[in-house]
């Protein structure tokens, strides 16, 4: 059974952003401004576990993005994915969510015989978590979102636990399936030293639009969504009022007064 892990390169979680004339740039005090999308680490880990514990033959990491996204794929390889492929073409740049799903569906189809595709719950740059569902719809595969545990998996069926707003759902569905994973599912491993060395030497193939059969339009021109206006969050008004008094009991009373005045209790 082949498993595909869908990843994206995003700014690091500690990145500091600046916006200049609508162009977003970022830097990282830790010196690593770009990382594999933090949520995708759970997908990479779960893919590797499907190989280790459930006999998956291949765990293939895909990333859609520019040449720089090879760094994200190297993380996937260093952790233990068996293969990594970059999907990159100017024709895909600036796609909206539907356009991106078309690219993912085409790339997953191009990995022939894949049975499972794994996504992280959301991507932190666009703050969207719809890629798994949309890709499932485009492929005609079973969608299983917010998955917190894979309970059983066979050649043609999967049972998962989904963490929903109002409870935990257990669902059995046929494969192939596209899953989005929440953090509860596992604890991603750190890449081993040997893994990192191997990943650094790996040749990462690139699939472009000509290699894939993409159904429908992609790219900025076909996008139905405009998100060009990006700006910094205005600072919160006012500064903190420190509650000071002779005793903790007195402080608690003063704070309670304020909170009743604010009508938040």
């Amino acid at each position: 059974m082949k498993v595909v892990v869908c990843t994206k390169q995003t700014p690091s979680t500690t990145a500091v952003f600046t916006v200049n004339n609508g162009t977003v740039s970022w830097d990282d005090p830790g010196g690593k401004p770009n990382v594999v999308n933090p949520w995708d680490e759970y997908a990479i880990e779960e893919g590797i576990r499907l190989k280790e514990n459930h006999g998956a033959s291949d765990v293939i990491a895909l990333a859609v993005g520019s040449e720089e996204s090879k760094e994200a794929l190297k993380t996937a390889l260093a952790m233990g994915c068996t293969e990594a492929i970059l999907v990159s073409d100017d024709a895909f740049a600036g796609s909206d969510a539907v356009g991106s799903a078309r690219v993912w569906a085409a790339a997953i189809n191009h990995v022939s015989d894949a049975k499972v595709a794994l996504f992280g719950k959301l991507t932190i740059d666009d703050n969207m978590g719809v890629a798994a569902m949309m890709t499932a719809q485009k492929l005609g595969w079973t969608p299983l979102t917010f998955v917190s545990a894979i309970k059983e998996i066979s050649e043609d069926s999967i049972t998962v636990e989904r963490l929903l707003d109002d409870g935990k759902e257990t669902v059995t569905a046929p494969l192939p399936a596209v899953l989005s994973l929440v953090k509860e599912i596992n604890e991603p491993r750190y890449p081993s030293f040997m893994g990192i060395r191997k990943a650094n030497r790996a040749e990462i193939p690139v699939w472009s639009a000509g290699d894939l059969t993409v159904e429908g339009e992609t790219g900025a021109a076909a996008s139905k969504v405009d998100w060009s206006h990006v700006y910094t969050i205005p600072p919160r008004e006012g500064s903190v009022t420190l509650i000071e008094a002779d005793s903790v009991e007195e402080q608690a009373k003063l704070l309670a007064d304020k909170l009743f005045e604010e009508k938040v209790i």
């Binding site: 990145a15 740059d125 703050n127 990006v230 969050i233």
Partner: peptide, 9 residues
């Protein structure tokens, strides 16, 4: 957007 550090219209 951007890890809730920026806003977008």
């Amino acid at each position: 957007v951007y890890a809730n550090k920026l806003l977008s219209t």
